[in-house]
Design a protein around this nucleic acid. Structure first.
Length: 597
RNA sequence: GGGGUCGUAGUUCAGCUGGUUAGAACGCCGGCCUGUCACGCCGGAGGUCGCGAGUUCGAGUCUCGUCGGCCCCGCCA
């Protein structure tokens, strides 16, 4: 039978949040409102734990204090919304609850108003509850009543407040750019919005406000920032949502160092205010080439070692066919020396091998070093010279393990960088209380896409080449480095940007190099090219993943924890079940027919 | 598009090599209880084992397909 509460709040005003009453308020009459976390009915006495976002307080219904209130309290159940008026009392000494911030006091209720009955919740609304994420997201409003679930959103609120104040005090202007904008080639798949006014035409949701912020620089704003939602229609990961929030920044008349300087100031402030940590400046910098050589990727986690070592020279004449063949074909052999790794079991090594195959590796060779003896399926193929070289390169000693991957450059670095992270976790080498911040600079401007058989921009097509590499554009474009920079935090890319091209002829040359035909360039980027031709200042900027920052600062394991209503891995909103079909009339208005597959 | 893993009561889970009436805890409902705070005690209800085929005398268990959650590859300028 449905329970229906009909009491009204009336003129009652909350005196304090539930988590606030302390001994100094004893004797005061208070009005408290909130949700019933738990009712303990002793027949005579009824205790109710009243909860709101600030915490819990015990309220007591005693028939000797007020018989009517006590009678009403018999009907209270979990998650009912109630308001109580009563006198705050000091608890009897033996009943003080030291685990509760409000544990020294309790409210003796004189009157209760039952404001709204709740269905039985599908999971207990308590921090200790082990509800699955599935349930938590479907009933996010229940989940958010738990302090542990709300905390990351509170932190996120402080984070964006600090960022806004920081940029405001440094002379930046926050400008909102369109959400309904233009689809552009390159980059991620666009979310499209059909136009009702122009059947067959579409807006795109922005992947980032990139072009608008550059136009703002041409407009003379000089310093712009925005905390802005961006959209990319690609598959999800633990650290990737289809809609996400970016801190977008752009400045005029600057060099990369100027952006880096502003951002370091921001990061130092955030670490100080949110974590109480004095982050030393300047942050370390690695060239893209060095990061890749030593860590295998462009977002290294510097909190632990296990650096990659290159054995290509050492194995040029190896008897190990795989190594020799790979090297002859222009590939490389690299590896990781794992201190103490000889204790890993055969099964663990097999698991690591199959892990490496995720990244294209065809196998993983290994050696366990034990008291001068080398244990390895391929031990007998190593010459004495090779053994000496391996020891010299790695500094490995007895008890250590050495892993090798032989393949092309991409596969070797992809698999080893992920093996490195796996080992860092597995061997517990990562100090969770430390933070690794590192700038990656001197990215290549272009890479060759074998699938599309053309050059593509590593950052984006508006990134400026390094001045000293301009001459290489015609002959050896892959050797051209760019004025791009990424900031990696704990092995995650949290920010990336560049100084842009501000001269229209250079911009046209780059678009040409990317294989974008002149007419297409005009159609897609004409407004930018035109803007550049009217006195665009040198400018550059950066974009930061606010969700990822919030995730790291709050210690969350998933981006979903720092987003109020995140999407599932299949890009579905678990709460609203979006996306859903629409009324055929809506489609007709938009001039859209679906194919039905 | 691909790989892995999970799906059993409202919830979190157990259920060995296929076997007869599918369990536990918490929650829920009823009763008792004036110092509990994970209250306690007594009693009770609650299941399309995600869905669909198949194998079998017999399927929660095995096979195939499918749907969904999560992790990963591809993808993400």
């Amino acid at each position: 039978m449905d329970r229906i509460f009909t009491d009204q709040l009336g003129t009652w005003k909350r005196s304090l949040y539930c988590g606030e009453p302390r001994a100094d308020a004893v004797g005061r009459e208070l009005i408290l409102v909130g949700w019933t976390q738990r009712r303990r009915d002793h027949g005579g006495l009824i205790f109710v734990d009243l909860r709101d976002r600030s915490g819990l307080v015990q309220v007591v219904f005693n028939p000797e204090v007020d018989a009517a209130a006590h009678e009403k309290a018999r009907h209270i159940r979990s998650e009912d919304v109630i308001a109580v008026r009563g006198v705050l009392a000091r608890r009897p000494p033996e009943t003080v609850n030291p685990d509760l911030a409000t544990g020294e006091v309790e409210l003796l209720v004189h009157e209760v108003r039952l404001l709204n009955a709740s269905e039985v919740p599908p999971f207990p609304v308590e921090d200790e509850s082990d509800a699955t994420e599935n349930m938590r997201l479907k009933y996010r409003y229940l989940d958010l009543r738990r302090p542990r679930s709300l905390a990351p959103l509170v932190l996120r609120s402080r984070l964006t407040k600090l960022i806004r104040d920081y940029f405001d005090s440094h002379g930046f202007i926050e400008v909102e750019t369109p959400v309904l904008t233009k689809s552009t080639p390159e980059g991620a798949r666009d979310y499209l919005v059909p136009s009702r006014m122009y059947h067959g035409k579409f807006y795109a949701l922005p992947q980032s406000p990139q072009l608008f912020k550059q136009i703002l620089m041409v407009g003379g704003l000089d310093r712009y920032f925005q905390i802005v939602r961006c959209f990319r229609d690609e598959d999800l990961r633990a650290d990737r949502q289809p809609e996400f929030t970016q801190l977008d920044v752009e400045m005029s008349f600057i060099q990369p160092d100027d952006i880096i300087d502003v951002i370091e100031g921001m990061m130092v402030l955030l670490f100080k205010e949110l974590k109480g940590i004095d982050m030393p400046r300047p942050f370390p910098r690695l060239s893209w080439a060095e990061a890749r050589a030593r860590y295998g990727n462009d977002k290294p986690d510097l909190r632990f070692g296990l650096e990659l070592k290159d054995f290509s020279a050492c194995f040029a004449k190896s008897q190990i066919k795989v190594f020799a063949n790979v090297l002859a074909a222009g590939g490389i052999v690299k590896g990781i020396a794992v201190p103490g790794g000889a204790s890993l079991s055969r099964k663990e090594l097999d698991d690591m091998t199959s892990f490496a195959t995720n990244y294209g590796a065809k196998g993983m060779a290994w050696i366990k070093l034990a008291d001068g003896e080398w244990q390895s399926p391929i031990a007998k193929f190593f010459t004495d010279v090779e053994r000496e070289e391996i020891v010299r390169i790695t500094g490995a000693k007895s008890g250590d393990l050495i892993l090798f991957i032989a393949d092309n450059d991409k596969v070797v670095h992809d698999s080893l960088s992920n093996l490195r992270l796996l080992l860092g976790e597995k061997l517990d080498l990562i100090d969770r209380n430390r933070y690794s911040l590192v700038w990656i600079v001197d990215f290549p401007l272009l890479e060759f896409d074998p699938a599309e058989k053309r050059y593509v921009a590593v950052h984006h097509p508006f990134t400026s080449p390094l001045d000293e590499d301009l001459a290489l554009l015609e002959g050896e474009p892959l050797k051209v480095r760019s004025k791009a920079y990424d900031l990696a935090l704990n092995g995650m890319e949290v920010g990336g940007g560049s100084v842009r091209i501000h001269q229209v002829d250079l911009q046209r040359r780059i678009l040409e190099l990317l294989g974008i035909r002149r007419e297409e360039a005009e159609a897609k980027f004409g407004f930018l090219l035109e803007a550049l031709s009217y006195g665009a200042p040198p400018h550059g900027g950066i974009a930061f993943g606010i969700d990822r920052l919030a995730m790291i600062f709050s210690g969350a394991q998933s981006l979903r924890d720092v987003i109020a209503f995140p999407k599932s891995q299949k890009a579905v909103c678990m709460l609203t079940e979006a996306p859903t079909p629409v009324d055929p009339r809506q489609l007709r208005e938009l001039g859209i027919k679906t194919t039905g597959d």
